[in-house]
Simulated scan of single mutants.
Amino acid sequence: MNLSKIHHIAIICSNYQVSKHFYTEILGLKIIQETYRESRDSYKLDLQIGENDQIELFSFPNPPARPTSPESCGLRHLAFQVDNVEVTVNQLRLRDVEVEPIRIDEITGKKFTFFRDPDDLPLEIYEK
């Protein structure tokens, strides 16, 4: 088996327009392609992170709720690497995004913190 990298992260949102605004306007991710899938009454928005990474943002009619606590079974959180955590925190707060206090990873000594997307998905910024 030769798993060489993660191709994409898929997120199902409850309100497509709100999440599209959050990921493109607040987080500044570039739209690669937006597709409306009529047979599913669903949008698929491909977003670029850095040079090679992608998030696929999906909408579906009435998706079931999912536990989002960081300690729930399943995906714990999605982490973005940034050059400077303080600068990124300030940029998020200027866009009215609540951000937890900055912490230091006790293993690596790197700065990190968490915030949440419109569906309460925990997102992390981690210093390079």
Rank of each mutant, 00 (worst) to 15 (best):
S4E: 13
S4K: 07
I6Y: 01
H7K: 13
H8P: 03
H8V: 06
H8F: 08
A10Q: 09
I11W: 00
I11C: 08
I12T: 15
I12N: 06
C13L: 05
S14K: 15
S14P: 04
Y16S: 09
Q17K: 13
V18L: 12
S19Y: 00
K20R: 15
K20L: 09
K20F: 01
K20P: 01
K20Q: 11
H21A: 10
H21R: 10
H21G: 04
T24W: 02
I26H: 08
L27H: 02
L27E: 04
G28C: 11
G28V: 08
L29F: 15
K30A: 14
I32V: 10
I32F: 08
Q33E: 14
R37M: 15
S39A: 14
S39Q: 14
R40I: 11
R40M: 10
S42L: 07
S42G: 12
Y43A: 07
K44T: 14
L47C: 08
Q48G: 12
Q48N: 08
I49Y: 03
I49E: 05
E51F: 10
E51M: 08
E51A: 13
N52D: 12
N52E: 14
D53Q: 13
D53P: 02
Q54Y: 09
I55R: 02
E56V: 13
E56L: 12
F58G: 07
F58S: 08
F58Q: 01
F60Q: 07
P61L: 12
P61D: 07
N62Y: 09
P64I: 07
P64V: 13
P64S: 15
A65K: 15
R66A: 12
P67Y: 03
T68C: 08
T68S: 06
S69G: 13
S72D: 09
C73A: 11
C73P: 05
C73E: 12
G74D: 06
G74L: 05
L75C: 12
R76V: 11
H77Q: 12
H77G: 03
L78M: 13
L78E: 04
A79T: 11
A79V: 05
F80H: 12
F80E: 10
F80Y: 12
F80V: 08
F80T: 04
Q81I: 05
Q81H: 10
V82E: 01
V82A: 05
V82Q: 02
V82N: 04
D83Y: 04
D83C: 11
N84G: 06
T88H: 02
T88K: 01
V89T: 01
N90A: 11
Q91E: 15
L92E: 03
L92N: 06
L94M: 11
L94H: 07
D96M: 07
D96P: 01
D96F: 04
D96R: 09
E98R: 10
V99Y: 00
P101Y: 06
P101S: 11
I104Y: 03
D105H: 03
D105R: 01
E106A: 08
I107E: 14
T108E: 01
G109Y: 09
G109C: 11
K111F: 03
F112T: 00
F112I: 00
R116P: 07
R116S: 11
R116A: 14
D117N: 10
D119K: 06
D120M: 06
D120T: 06
P122H: 12
L123N: 08
L123W: 03
E127V: 05
